[in-house]
Design a protein around this nucleic acid. Structure first.
Lengths: 207, 207
DNA sequence: GTCTATAGGACGATAGAC
DNA sequence: GTCTATCGTCCTATAGAC
């Protein structure tokens, strides 16, 4: 340690991404300077430009990598299981995956407005692809009569918003284990999409 | 119009708040300079300091005013109605109020990290006060057996996250009216907090 | 690949004229 | 109450030495 010059390409790149991720999540993209990222990594600001053409590309790269990770993990799930099984899997997966990557999730939501239009469109496409995997499950559950939702698209957005919200309050040293949290949310998600108890269910009467 | 100097205290103050609200929501607090706010208002940057001691106070004032508005509107609701009635009222109120103030809602959530610690604590207290009004409804509904939720605190956060999420996609010229959206969400909220249909309800067995 | 140095500009906030 | 002018600082990105 304590060397002040030399070649470090193998480790500097990942360290830049890790530091940028943490700092962007904590203070916001616009509030974090390239100098601060460099200081966290332990290099001078100019050295960052060996790894990224500019600050915008650094943000976009972090968000894109996160979305691709999310889609890749989601793609491993069985898409032929019963809709109820798939919905539980999605619920538990979304909570757990997002809590494990709280910084990336936070950035991918909060910093959308700091993307250039092209980059924004790319991230939005990826996000919509993820949402579509849930919407498909809900549609199939409606078709099989496992679920009863008046509007699968809105139900998709509602479920994802509810689950993503866990990230705003969950603490690993809190009173509930991750599994308990998953179970509580799964209970609410399941009830929300199945048939109601016939009290004032005025929506989507059977045709 | 087109006068370049003079006294405008009656209108400049509100215009500064309105411009700051819009710009902060669109680009983020850190990305908006005092010069840009001044340009939007139609004054020079120095003039802003007749109305706010600094940029931080401007942000804090917007967030505080929004939270006080929210709490004042919520305080007008009947707190002795049946829990089911109160929950429907909260659901529709939260969606409608937040959609009518999309910029303020967005800022009050996204810019928390740009508040000084003292200001952050103040806003957090106000936010918790609002959440408590819903948690109280859920607790009363559990006591009266109208609701069946294993953890009212988590259900509170889950419901609020789900409802606030409407702001990320709702457009006034979209395919659904505000009332339709409220009804769809109320259907999901109601079902999520009442008793399930006895399939795998392993949580909180009756004592 | 990292350094130092710097170009060229924007930033928050203040001072003093009117 | 608003203006012009400015202080001192910070910014992104680049150039050239090693």
């Amino acid at each position: 340690m304590a060397r002040t010059t030399g070649s470090h390409s193998d480790i500097t790149g990942p360290r830049i991404h890790a530091s940028a991720l943490t700092l962007f999540a904590r203070h916001g993209y616009a509030a974090v300077s390239m100098r601060k990222i460099a200081a966290e990594v332990g290099v001078q600001a100019g050295a960052l430009y060996n790894y990224t053409p500019d600050k915008q590309s650094l943000l976009f790269g972090l968000m894109r990598a996160h979305m691709l990770d999310l889609l890749a993990a989601r793609a491993t799930h069985d898409q032929n299981a019963p809709a109820m099984t798939q919905l539980e899997q999605f619920t538990r997966f979304h909570i757990r995956f997002n809590l494990e990557r709280a910084d990336a999730v936070f950035i991918s939501y909060m910093e959308l407005r700091n993307l250039t239009p092209d980059n924004f469109a790319t991230i939005e496409d990826l996000r919509r692809g993820y949402e579509d995997t849930l919407e498909t499950v809900l549609q199939r559950g409606v078709a099989s009569k496992e679920f009863d939702v008046p509007d699968p698209k809105i139900a998709t957005l509602a479920v994802i918003a509810m689950l993503t919200g866990v990230g705003t309050w969950y603490r690993h040293d809190g009173r509930l284990s991750l599994d308990q949290v998953e179970t509580i949310y799964w209970d609410m998600v399941r009830k929300a999409v199945v048939s109601g108890t016939d009290q004032e269910t005025a929506l989507s009467p059977p045709i």
